[in-house]
């Protein structure tokens, strides 16, 4: 079952790389003309085509592109001619850093709040929480971000509104620098994750075996820890992984707001410059992380499901 799922994930990845490749192929005219413009000299276009290997047939280019990717060679940026690997490398690690810190805060907070809201359903606490999540779900990321900037960086000057980080900074300085983007991401993701955790727990608590546990006279803690939790594990893990995937993608907008030197910022810049090789490379990286996390979610929930773990 797990192996089947992994194979499916790999297949998805291959198809997506193909789609990314084909997407560029379908461009009206070709990349060289699109970039150089209509007025470019035919010789310049020809030379450029050669550099992009556009003179070779499509399937050969696809496999050589894929082979290069596997070796970590992404080619050169069209905009400034620098190797894409250099551009992406540290930006990707910055993005991962931001996403990881946000996840480390968001996951435990969301799960604990979600469980509490489910256990004290319809209490004042639950209502407050669902009102708060309803609004954060409705707010665009940049709205949350600018409110935080207005409050914590303009009205009271505690955190920087531009999250510039570099390799010389200490961990503490880095965290101070990314505090606001991190808080933005956390707020947005916590809301989603909490809502889904709450729903998963409520669903489990309504099952007949929980009623049976109550009728056996077990105490509340035991019912929750021993009876509800092992069965809630699978759905909750799923919720977490899906939200992490969401977080990795949601990072794009937040990076732009805070001018954070991450992969998302690079992707957006390259799209507006139509720097297609960079778009391909960073898009593929985002897609891989996203698919990977979704895959992890499925595998973990298969493993943590008692019925699937102990087959007949």
């Amino acid at each position: 079952m797990v192996a089947k799922r992994l194979a499916l994930g790999l297949l998805t990845l291959i198809i997506i790389s193909l789609l990314i490749f084909l997407g560029v192929e379908l461009l009206p005219g070709d990349v060289a003309e699109a970039i150089l413009g209509q007025s470019a000299l035919p010789e310049t276009v020809a030379a450029f085509r050669k550099e992009l290997k556009l003179d070779l047939p499509a399937h050969i280019r696809y496999f050589s592109w894929l082979g290069d990717l596997a070796k970590g060679e992404f080619g050169n940026s069209l905009a400034n001619g620098r190797p894409i690997a250099d551009l992406i490398g540290w930006r990707f690690s910055n993005t991962l850093f931001l996403a990881t810190v946000a996840a480390l805060i968001a996951v435990p907070v969301a799960i604990i709040l979600g469980i509490l809201a489910a256990l004290y359903r319809n209490s004042l606490f639950d209502r407050l929480i669902s009102m708060a999540t309803l609004s954060t779900i409705s707010f665009p990321e940049f709205f949350v971000a600018y409110i935080l900037i207005a409050l914590l960086s303009v009205q009271i000057i505690i955190f920087p509104s531009i999250s510039n980080i570099n390799e010389q900074m200490s961990l503490f300085e880095k965290i101070h620098a990314i505090f606001l983007p991190c808080l933005t991401l956390t707020l947005v993701v916590v809301a989603h994750m909490m809502r889904q955790t709450r729903a998963a727990i409520i669903n489990i608590m309504a099952s007949p075996f929980i009623e049976m546990a109550r009728l056996k006279g077990l105490n509340r803690t035991r019912i929750i820890v021993l009876h509800a939790f092992p069965n809630a594990l699978s759905p909750v893990i799923n919720v977490v992984a899906i939200n992490l995937a969401y977080l990795v993608v949601g990072v794009v907008v937040v990076e732009v707001v805070f001018v954070y030197p991450g992969l998302g910022q690079l992707l957006v810049d390259s799209v507006s410059k139509r720097d297609i090789p960079v778009v391909q490379a960073s898009g593929l990286i985002f897609a891989t992380v996203y698919i990977g996390l979704n895959l992890l979610a499925d595998v973990l929930s298969i493993i943590s499901n008692p019925r699937l773990r102990n087959p007949k």
């Binding site: 998805t12 198809i15 997506i16 789609l19 990314i20 997407g23 560029v24 379908l26 461009l27 995937a245 990795v248 993608v249 949601g250 794009v252 992707l267 957006v268 390259s270 799209v271 139509r274 297609i276 778009v279 391909q280 898009g283 985002f286 897609a287 996203y290 698919i291 979704n294």
Partner: peptide
């Protein structure tokens, strides 16, 4: 549909828009 959904929407849209303008 499964495969299309495995792809993050925002990234997909960005890539397509980079091609279509």
């Amino acid at each position: 549909i499964d495969i299309l959904m495995a792809f993050p929407t925002l990234i997909f849209a960005l890539m397509v828009l980079s091609v279509t303008g």
